[in-house]
């Protein structure tokens, strides 16, 4: 069973600062969702509400259709893994992993298997681990929780590229093996783009956009071909990014191409590809565009 998520008119304030404002959001169960936003956009605040780390100032947070705050049946099946993990630094890796057994669903054998695979030494203390290994330990605890809603908040920080790749693959394998709801909050958008099914973009404490990945990719296009032909086709369109290598140019435009534009592109030898999620994200959250 996977958990759906629903926030209704949710507001969260820290003193005078409004971290989230009137957020209405529904996330379908059994999917991998990407949560994107600039620094301070409200991603961590949103995840903290879903894991009942915080109580909203206003509105309602429902997970699996039930209020999440102090709801033992729900929170015991939610895992929020924050960057660096929530550990007692003086504990050993072994006992840190074993703390996970507070969850009835925790899979200790799987956690040990992952620790061996990612070369995290069980006998070391957490405060003796490098930042990367600490992040791996947090990821291991999140995966082995076998939760119905698992959220990773910048958990990749400190991991090197091969480790991040292995983590994403393990996450996907676990997801395929046991369908559940996953939310990935990250700044490494291009790295995770292929794993995401839906994307939520938050900006200045509000949900700016929520759609499936295909819809985002259809919001623009990448035109690659002879520089002159690409420039001619892109004229009048909103250019999000461009690269040039010799006589070849690649331009990302922020609007879908109509049938005639596609015909002209084909005639001019221009390849049309989907827009990169990262380029689109940068475009959508540009302060000049959003008026922030």
């Amino acid at each position: 069973m996977s958990f759906s998520v629903s926030l209704r008119d949710v507001t969260l304030t820290y003193g005078d600062t409004e971290a989230l404002s009137d957020v209405d959001l529904t996330l379908a169960a059994g999917k991998i969702h990407g949560l994107l936003g600039r620094n301070g956009a409200g991603k961590t605040s949103l995840l903290s509400l879903l894991a009942a780390f915080r109580k909203p100032t206003g509105g309602e947070v429902l997970v699996d259709g039930r209020p999440v705050w102090e709801n033992v049946d729900v929170v015991s099946r939610i895992a929020l893994v924050r960057e660096g993990g929530d550990f007692d630094d003086t504990d050993t890796v072994k006992s840190t992993i074993e703390t996970g057994e507070l969850r009835p669903s925790f899979d200790l054998e799987y956690a040990h298997k992952l620790a061996q695979r990612f070369e995290v030494p069980l006998d070391k203390k957490v405060n003796q681990l490098s930042r990367g290994k600490r992040s791996v330990l947090a990821a291991i605890c999140g995966l082995a929780a076998r939760a119905e809603l698992t959220m990773f908040d910048e958990v990749h920080l400190g991991m090197d590229a091969p480790t991040r790749d292995a983590f994403y693959k393990e996450l996907l394998a676990e997801y395929m093996d046991r369908p559940h709801t996953v939310i990935l909050s990250t700044h490494l958008i291009d790295e995770v783009a292929n794993y995401l099914e839906e994307v939520v973009i938050v900006d200045s404490g509000r949900v700016l956009r929520h759609d499936d990945v295909e819809a985002f990719q259809g919001m623009g296009a990448t035109l690659t071909g002879p520089a002159d032909a690409v420039d001619a086709l892109a004229a009048g369109l909103e250019v999000l990014a461009e690269q040039r290598l010799g006589g070849t140019k690649s331009v990302t435009v922020g609007s879908a191409l109509d049938a005639s534009a596609r015909e002209r592109a084909a005639a001019a030898g221009i390849e049309i590809g989907p827009v990169g999620l990262q380029d689109l994200f940068i475009h959508l959250t540009n302060p000049d565009r959003t008026g922030a």
Partner: peptide, 16 residues
Amino acid sequence: YTLLPITVAQGMTRRE
């Protein structure tokens, strides 16, 4: 001070 965040992160309620 030390264990409250750890136990909540492990899916316990504050009441528990």
